[in-house]
Design a protein around this nucleic acid. Structure first.
Lengths: 113, 113
DNA sequence: TTGCCTGCAAACCCTTTGCATAGTC
DNA sequence: GACTATGCAAAGGGTTTGCAGGCAA
């Protein structure tokens, strides 16, 4: 579940028509402070918020079709402990985003050559 | 080496005073198309550009003090092959950013408790 | 009444674009 | 003369903020 503030606003307006974008921003800010949701900057123009309550996941962001897939956080546990050991950096895996090419676009790219 | 377009502009202006921000954006856009530099969205307000010519690295972004450290790409090779095997996703490690707490902030955070 | 939440509009930052000019080939 | 690069200013998208009104405690 990912959504930009604008998308969140659209969704919420189905239940609460007239709800303004400011309220969405203010609520998201609050929820983030509480740790209920997190946000990352996947592409240029818009932040992406996602609920933190349904388990962590890694974001796989395709920079060709801009699709965002989710992957199991467990895959990055080794990486996380490695950077902690080596750099003292305590990684928050729920914020991890990996850029690259999704399966479909990788196939297309190969076919182009 | 990381810099926002504005920082790039400041740096370049030491050699070329009067150079405008538009030119910086246009040049960075060109350089990115050529693959010389890449950019990521580490925080909210500003993109971060970095030169691609001096070797890939992972970004370790502290979301407390906003410091950006670099880590060895090799640490993520296992992760990259894992997501490729499992999801068909071809990760571009030069774009990889890991959010969390840097050593200093992690220590501060622990001391706070 | 007091305080919180909301909508609206304005302001703000970052980025892009249009247009006119200066420089080079 | 044609083309490219540049500066300037305006426009655009996303986000934040100030202020006034409405509601609940």
């Amino acid at each position: 579940m990912h959504a930009t503030p604008e998308q969140v606003c659209d969704l919420v307006q189905r239940d609460a028509p007239g709800l303004s974008l400011s309220t969405v921003y203010r609520t998201l800010e609050l929820l983030e402070a509480l740790g209920v949701v997190t946000h990352t900057h996947l592409t240029h123009g818009a932040s992406t918020y996602h609920a933190g309550g349904h388990g962590q996941h890694i974001h796989l962001v395709c920079h060709r079709c801009e699709a965002v897939a989710e992957a199991d956080t467990a895959l990055a546990l080794d990486l996380a402990s490695a950077v902690t050991d080596r750099y003292g950096f305590r990684a928050d895996l729920s914020h991890l985003s990996l850029h690259g090419l999704c399966r479909a676009c990788a196939a297309t790219e190969d076919a182009d050559r």
